[in-house]
């Protein structure tokens, strides 16, 4: 047992510099978010502050239109997740259960789309949305996020679907179930955990996206959270850093908690599908 203890100590010692650097921005965020405005720019700079100013959060909420951006982000992320999943579930099912002509080509196509980043296509996308009249319309983000996430969701779902034994469905057919019945009563209930995990990752991806939101949303009432926060910082002579950090805390912490809870599924999913 002592060997495990020594090993643990050595490992923690090795990891600690990295952990300090990882946790540093979180410290900065909290400490800034709760300090009084007057203490932002003191010399010499210091971590200490005189009191917890929780009102920063409520002030920030009103002044930066946080609520509006929050609703926009929620709408875009939820809708994009729903669209991506509705389109991905049948595709992943087909990939997992059928042989069909062009399957290999489709697989390659998915890999390619997964690699295509929005930034390279951003000009073309902007012109496309322009011609569709969707600039300044949150639905443009819904469509693009869904499209860019689909390769990942199909892949993730497929690798989980593969782990659901095919003979369960066959047993249901033998029991007199139609394909649809076996899908609804046997397959889908078993696939729910996979779908939930995939949905949450898609949600987080959409929630965090910046470039497309910055490009497509030209008026401030349509901003999503990352753009809204960026707008508080960029090109301003005076930045209200305590508000910015308060907003970052609110936008980040729930997602970080959700992610921490789910990261082991991601590791498993990638081990099952994306990498192998």
């Amino acid at each position: 047992m002592t060997t495990k203890l020594t090993r643990s100590l050595i490992y923690w010692a090795l990891l600690s510099p990295l952990m300090v650097v990882i946790l540093f921005p979180f410290g900065v965020m909290f400490v800034t978010a709760v300090r009084p405005r007057e203490e932002l720019f003191v010399y010499p700079p210091t971590w200490g502050f005189s009191e917890f100013r929780w009102e920063n959060f409520s002030e920030m909420w009103v002044k930066t239109n946080f609520g509006g951006a929050l609703l926009n982000s929620l709408y875009v992320s939820v809708a994009a997740t729903v669209v991506a999943l509705v389109l991905s579930i049948p595709a992943a099912y087909a990939m997992s259960r059928y042989r069909f002509a062009g399957k290999g080509a489709y697989r390659t196509f998915l890999l390619m789309t997964q690699m295509m980043s929005p930034i390279v296509l951003v000009l073309g996308l902007f012109r496309l949305m322009m011609s569709l009249g969707l600039v300044n319309d949150l639905n443009s983000l819904v469509l693009t996020y869904a499209a860019f996430n689909m390769a990942f969701t199909i892949w993730m779902l497929q690798s989980y679907f593969n782990s659901i034994p095919r003979d369960l469905e066959e047993a249901a057919w033998m029991d007199g179930a139609s394909h649809l019945t076996s899908l609804v009563r046997i397959f889908l209930p078993l696939a729910v955990p996979a779908m939930v995990v995939t949905a949450i990752f898609t949600f987080i991806n959409s929630w965090n996206e910046f470039v497309l939101a910055l490009t497509m949303m030209r008026s401030s009432e349509d901003f999503t959270l990352p753009v809204q926060i960026y707008a508080q910082v960029a090109g301003r002579y005076q930045v209200e850093w305590h508000h910015v950090m308060a907003a970052t805390v609110l936008a980040t912490v729930p997602v970080a908690i959700m992610f921490s809870w789910l990261q082991r599924y991601l590791i498993r999913g990638m081990a099952l599908g994306a990498v192998k």
């Binding site: 990891l15 990295l18 952990m19 990882i22 946790l23 540093f24 921005p25 979180f26 410290g27 900065v28 965020m29 400490v31 800034t32 932002l40 720019f41 003191v42 010399y43 700079p45 971590w47 987080i204 929630w207 965090n208 996206e209 910046f210 990352p226 753009v227 926060i229 960026y230 910082v233 850093w241 910015v244 950090m245 970052t248 936008a251 980040t252 997602v255 970080a256 959700m258 992610f259 921490s260 990261q263």
Partner: peptide, 27 residues
């Protein structure tokens, strides 16, 4: 802890670092 930066949008991370690196008052 190691996985934490993945959860946070690059934008937010960059905003926080921009402030943390502030020449006058950065932490």
């Amino acid at each position: 802890i190691i996985m934490l930066p993945w959860a946070i949008s690059l934008t937010m991370t960059a905003v926080v670092w921009r402030w943390a690196l502030n020449g006058r008052a950065g932490l």
